[in-house]
Amino acid sequence: MSIGAVLAQLRGDFPDVTISKIRFLEAEGLVQPGRTPSGYRQFAAADVERLRFVLAAQRDHYLPLKVIKEQLDAADSGAGPTAALPRPPRRLVPIDAPAENVGLPVADDFTVGKELRLTREELLEQAGIDAPALAELQQYGLVRPGPAGFFDPDAVLVARTVKAMTEFGIEPRHLRAFRAAADREVGLLEQIVTPVYRHRDPEAKSRADEVVRELAALSVTLHTLLVKAGIRGVAGC
Rank of each mutant, 00 (worst) to 15 (best):
G103E: 08
G103H: 10
L104E: 01
P105V: 02
P105A: 03
V106M: 05
D108C: 08
D109M: 08
T111F: 12
G113H: 09
K114M: 13
K114C: 08
E115K: 15
L116W: 09
R117F: 10
E121L: 14
E125S: 11
A131C: 12
P132T: 07
L137F: 03
Q139C: 12
Q139L: 13
Y140K: 04
G141K: 02
L142C: 01
V143G: 00
V143Q: 00
G146T: 15
P147T: 13
A148H: 14
A148L: 14
G149S: 06
F150G: 13
F151L: 04
F151R: 01
D152T: 13
D152Y: 10
D154V: 07
A155D: 00
A155Y: 00
A155K: 00
V156W: 00
V158M: 04
V158Y: 00
V158I: 07
R160G: 04
R160S: 05
T161F: 15
T161I: 09
T161G: 10
T161S: 10
K163D: 13
K163L: 13
A164W: 14
M165I: 10
M165N: 08
F168A: 15
F168T: 11
E171N: 09
P172F: 01
H174S: 11
A177W: 09
F178S: 10
R179M: 10
A180N: 11
A181V: 06
A181P: 04
D183S: 15
E185D: 15
G187E: 04
G187H: 07
E190F: 13
I192Q: 12
V193D: 01
T194E: 11
V196S: 06
Y197D: 07
R200I: 09
D201I: 02
P202Y: 05
E203A: 07
A204I: 02
S206W: 08
A208E: 01
D209F: 06
E210R: 15
R213D: 02
R213L: 07
E214I: 12
L215R: 05
A216E: 06
A217K: 04
L218N: 04
L218P: 02
L218A: 05
S219R: 03
L225G: 14
